[in-house]
Design a protein around this nucleic acid. Sequence first.
DNA 1: GCCGTTTTCGGCCCGACTGTTTTCAGTCG
Length: 572
Amino acid sequence: MARPNDEVEALLREYADLIAITGGDAFRARAYEKAARSIGGYPADVSHLDAEGLREIPNVGRSIADKVLEYLRTGRIALVEERRARIPAGVRELIRIPTLGPKKALRLYEDLHVSSVDELASAIEADALADLRGFGEKTQDNIRHGIELLRRAGSRIPLSAALETAEEIVGELSRVTGCRRCAYAGSLRRMRETVGDLDVLVAAERSAPFMAALCDLPATAEVVARGTKKTSVRTAGGLQVDLRVLPPASWGAGLQYFTGSKAHNIRTRTIAVHQGLKLSEYGLFDAGSGRSLASRTEEEVYARLGLPWIPPTLREDRGEIEAALRGELPEVVTERDIRGDLHTHTDLTDGLAPLEQMVEAAAARGYAYYAVTDHAPDLYMQRMTDEKILAQRERLRELDGVHHGMRLLHGTELNIGPEGDVDWPEDFLAGFDLCVASLHSHFDQDRAALTRRLVRACENPYVHVIGHPTTRLIGRRPGVDADWDAVFAACARTGTALEVNAQPDRLDLCDEDILRARDHGVRFAVNTDAHSVRQLAHLRYGVGTAQRGWLTREDVINAWPLSRLRRFLRGG
DNA sequence: GCCGTTTTCGGCCCGACTGTTTTCAGTCG
């Protein structure tokens, strides 16, 4: 099951939403939100803490500590259940629609008895909102568009959630007696940004114990189908998990087949056919005699087809077969190649952990260098000042090299203003080792204005990296509309790196944009944008996305040794 | 509900944008 911290976070967030929807004290709602975020990002497992330990978590006081203890003891929080009884779950779903907040949700529920996204969609179709105060033409358009966005994301779940569930399931099944191999395949293994269902494979002589184990998992809510070769279940979170048990001799062929993509597999099967072979999930066979030629490992299967092993993240039929045939497959960047994180926050702005904890955690990851990039003053809500950032710099210099010799870079995340200007004058910017610059507002400027804005940011000699360049939020907000080829060209010309932001709901740039930018000769930085210690581990999602964009160590500035990185930052 | 170099009460992230309610509520970052 999910980590206790995550369960508590979800519950407190729900409570905060319910307070907001029922018109409770806004500050109280925010207090629960803040506590939820702090607990979710807290490094220690809350189920191992007592009341005193819980209260050491920022934004957790006596009342919330008691509620957490109640949850850990009984599995529920009475006050949350009380609020739940007053507001149908579907009403809370409504506030996931962009531009629709708690106030509008409550009005829809009270006046029209709308208690789900589907009911709202029908109500709009039936023109039932016409007489409702505050729901004019434009508002309805915005809601309709918001519902569209939600639905397009559909039932697919974020890569990060899928990966956590898959790793738990693989962990459990690996412990079952008779398990020779166990792995997840499918779009998850290819690290697609969202995942529709999980494909889990087991190699074993007997399948029954694994089918039983899957059905008995605590995460399993419903058994969809149960057979000897394949069993499907649905988790409490609504994720379908397909388990296939293969004979050990078919492991490689099965893994290849179920990893896909479909387009990639069509290409490999075509290659097989042209060689008088047949490729299936059971192996690579001679089409005439039916004799098995390769099946134990993926490497064998690819080799018998005349191909090198192709990393799963490349298997999209986006030229990887041709590159493999030419012997020109890229050696894609791996998590081990990343020598440092270049975009991270502390509690000086909206991060959760103090500088010392972030630095210590970064060192524990084995980084050679690490940049701290808190928000700059133009993002007013962060209340940054010259004094605060300079005091941080002083403290950071003291910590430089203290942990395993890890070097620290003092940076900032600048705000790209509507005209492409950034916070602070040039002489102040010159004091930073590294500046990331990102869009945080004015997303709906027209294409020409947005392009100019981004190009101007690139042309600023103190801007080294463009953070989360499109600002998309997966399933919630599309990226901004710019002439990206012009922006990528500007990055290449000015030596400005583009970020591959590893936050699971961003993954920005996305794989396709990376491929385009790469053609322009742009460099990249794979960064977590971590706002807590735990988020430093989000790096893997960024690396997966970078791989899908065919990036190598050479393309990624934070895979370089520090001396080379510093030359890049100096513009050399 | 949390918190404290304006400290046990009285603040709390501030400002902008949008749509619609002609003076501001709601939402967002």
